[in-house]
Computed example of a mutant assay.
Amino acid sequence: MPRVVVKAVFENVRFKCQRCGSCCHHNRPLDFEELIPMERLKEFCERSNLIYLTKKDINSISNRTGKEPAEFVDTLYDYDGCSVKVKDDARKVILDLPVMKSKADTTCVFYENGCTIYPVRPIACRLFPFRVDEETAPNGDALLNISYNPTCPGIGKGDVVDRRKLERLVSELFMQRASDINPQLQSMIASGAISADAKVYRTFPGKREKTAMTQGHPCG
């Protein structure tokens, strides 16, 4: 059975947050299409810093702020809590993972001279400037390699980063995302809604106004 292997692929990196807010600006490389094939996902992740949200993140932020998810959650299609969409006669599986909305100046909707939801900030924010590169090993294992953004002003300052703590945080993020998505996928597979030769895509939210899912399979 395939395993999930989480590993920090760096040694003795120092980091101390400089409170500069650079991580609160969301980069969206507009030369990518709205549906990103998995073979281009690594490149997209390296060039963007969208803040992906788990359902736990969304619930915590909503409870803290009193805002409805639609006020701060960005998806390609209308957000309905279902991250898995199926189109083109079950041949296209679309993972429309929710991300944090941005303002016109590219800053996070909760950034006002600093983070206004710091106690409940998403795991993705707690990880920055460290990022996760997802790969599949020849034996089928999922490899979650933790690297970092060398342009962050906090890199090289402060104490040496606790790699094991980072790995635990990434494991938590992966498990939360899996619990969000897997039941949806399993339900669709069981119902025959997904073709055996379906191609998987990740969405690029925020490139344009999102629209309703006019064709596809609802979450069961």
Score class of each variant (00 low, 15 high):
residue 58 I to W: 04
residue 120 V to L: 07
residue 2 P to C: 01
residue 73 V to R: 00
residue 44 F to W: 14
residue 126 R to Y: 10
residue 207 K to D: 06
residue 54 T to H: 04
residue 105 D to T: 13
residue 7 K to Q: 11
residue 40 R to K: 11
residue 100 M to R: 05
residue 88 D to H: 00
residue 100 M to H: 10
residue 23 C to E: 09
residue 130 F to N: 08
residue 168 R to C: 03
residue 15 F to M: 00
residue 146 I to C: 05
residue 160 V to K: 14
residue 86 V to R: 01
residue 65 T to M: 03
residue 190 A to C: 07
residue 177 R to A: 15
residue 188 M to G: 11
residue 205 P to Y: 03
residue 197 D to E: 15
residue 45 C to I: 12
residue 25 H to W: 10
residue 13 V to N: 06
residue 95 L to V: 14
residue 209 E to T: 13
residue 171 S to Q: 14
residue 219 C to I: 13
residue 107 T to A: 15
residue 157 K to T: 12
residue 89 D to H: 01
residue 117 I to M: 01
residue 44 F to D: 04
residue 186 Q to E: 15
residue 111 Y to D: 00
residue 103 K to A: 09
residue 5 V to F: 06
residue 155 I to Y: 03
residue 218 P to V: 11
residue 66 G to A: 05
residue 55 K to R: 08
residue 34 E to L: 09
residue 190 A to Y: 07
residue 170 V to Y: 04
residue 173 L to H: 14
residue 81 G to H: 01
residue 1 M to F: 12
residue 30 L to F: 11
residue 152 C to M: 06
residue 47 R to P: 02
residue 40 R to Y: 12
residue 43 E to Y: 02
residue 23 C to P: 04
residue 210 K to P: 14
residue 182 N to P: 06
residue 131 R to D: 04
residue 145 N to K: 13
residue 180 D to M: 06
residue 53 L to W: 10
residue 137 A to N: 13
residue 196 A to I: 08
residue 178 A to H: 12
residue 10 F to A: 06
residue 167 E to H: 08
residue 174 F to K: 11
residue 63 N to Y: 03
residue 20 C to D: 09
residue 88 D to A: 01
residue 162 D to Y: 12
residue 158 G to N: 07
residue 82 C to F: 04
residue 29 P to D: 07
residue 42 K to M: 11
residue 168 R to S: 06
residue 47 R to W: 03
residue 183 P to E: 04
residue 79 Y to W: 09
residue 160 V to C: 04
residue 98 P to K: 07
residue 126 R to I: 07
residue 46 E to S: 10
residue 134 E to P: 01
residue 155 I to A: 02
residue 82 C to E: 03
residue 8 A to P: 05
residue 92 K to M: 10
residue 199 K to I: 13
residue 108 C to D: 12
residue 162 D to K: 10
residue 183 P to L: 00
residue 200 V to N: 08
residue 134 E to A: 09
residue 115 C to Q: 00
residue 108 C to S: 01
residue 93 V to E: 00
residue 4 V to K: 10
residue 212 A to G: 13
residue 132 V to C: 14
residue 122 P to R: 00
residue 50 L to M: 12
residue 62 S to I: 02
residue 54 T to L: 06
residue 50 L to P: 05
residue 6 V to S: 14
residue 129 P to N: 05
residue 180 D to K: 12
residue 129 P to T: 07
residue 56 K to Y: 04
residue 52 Y to T: 06
residue 35 L to S: 01
residue 97 L to Y: 08
residue 26 H to N: 15
residue 194 I to N: 00
residue 11 E to W: 03
residue 96 D to R: 01
